[in-house]
């Protein structure tokens, strides 16, 4: 993996998807050319000191050929606090400091194995780039995607146009099955032939990741989970973003930095709280 760079990136577009979600396109050629699916960037949401720290975001899309525009990345952002509100309000022509690419990427599977991606809410973010990498390998892809309501589900056309089959779930039942996305996943795992290779990729709320990994273990399937922790630096300096993992070799449980050892972990190794 290449060394991270800090790009003073021009905002090329800010598309508001809903009152809470937006997609920011950032001119960051050095990051776009090096990024791998599952990696993240640390973005300064203001040039001032409130908030002081950068915010981590999965790299959503890598936009290599934009006509005359420079290679860019986008991030999928959900407005939850001061920093993400700044990003929701950003305008084309603004500049944001963007550090990356950071972290361990997903390991894509190749045919005959299938790839099933499980996304909850803003946890959709790492799956566009993963789709691109899986398609390049010719892997069959299925997306299980859940949100509170149909207004929280985005980019469905994007995934469908790339041959990804969709299984949707909403808590209010307004789109797809009513309830949690892990319910259709459980049914699909039960129906899938045990002899057929399969990798589960999950990103979303920690309760969902915990449910996915326990389903994966029950059905004897491997999984890779992308975790999100409060992160100070993204470089391994601060030890803020730790997550508990079981060290397979030593057989003991300990904290590791999700910025360096993750954000993508083998689902069997994570010890959920």
């Amino acid at each position: 993996m290449s060394a991270p760079v800090d790009v003073h990136a021009e905002v090329l577009a800010n598309t508001r998807l809903s009152p809470d979600y937006n997609v920011l396109v950032l001119a960051a050629p050095a990051i776009a050319s090096a990024a791998q699916a599952g990696q993240f960037v640390m973005i300064r949401t203001t040039s001032g000191t409130d908030p002081l720290l950068r915010r981590p975001f999965s790299i959503f899309e890598v936009l290599r050929h934009q006509g005359a525009a420079p290679p860019a990345i986008s991030i999928l952002c959900k407005r939850v606090g001061v920093g993400t509100s700044h990003l929701f309000d950003a305008a084309a022509g603004d500049y944001l400091d963007c550090l990356g690419p950071l972290g361990k990427p997903f390991t894509p599977v190749a045919p005959p194995a299938e790839a099933w991606m499980i996304a909850g809410g803003v946890g959709l973010a790492p799956f566009a780039t993963l789709t691109d990498e899986l398609r390049a390998a010719g892997t069959s892809i299925r997306l299980f995607y859940g949100g509170r309501s149909h207004t929280d589900l985005f980019y469905l056309d994007w995934f469908e146009s790339r041959g990804v089959s969709l299984d949707l779930a909403t808590e209010d039942g307004s789109r797809g099955s009513r309830g949690r996305v892990t319910e259709p996943l459980d049914l699909a795992l039960s129906a899938h032939p045990a002899s057929a290779g399969l990798m589960l990729y999950a990103c979303g709320p920690e309760a969902m990741l915990k449910a996915v990994t326990s389903l994966a273990q029950r059905h004897r399937r491997p999984s890779q989970v992308s975790t999100e922790r409060i992160m100070g630096c993204g470089m391994g300096g601060c030890y803020s973003c730790v997550i508990k993992v079981r060290d397979a070799a030593a057989g003991r449980v300990h904290f590791v930095r999700s910025c360096l050892n993750g954000p993508v972990f083998d689902g069997d190794h994570v010890v959920w709280e």
Partner: peptide
């Protein structure tokens, strides 16, 4: 965790 929290112009660890 949580091991850090931000405050105006600062952070606690």
């Amino acid at each position: 965790p949580p091991r850090v929290v931000e405050t105006p112009s600062g952070m606690l660890n």
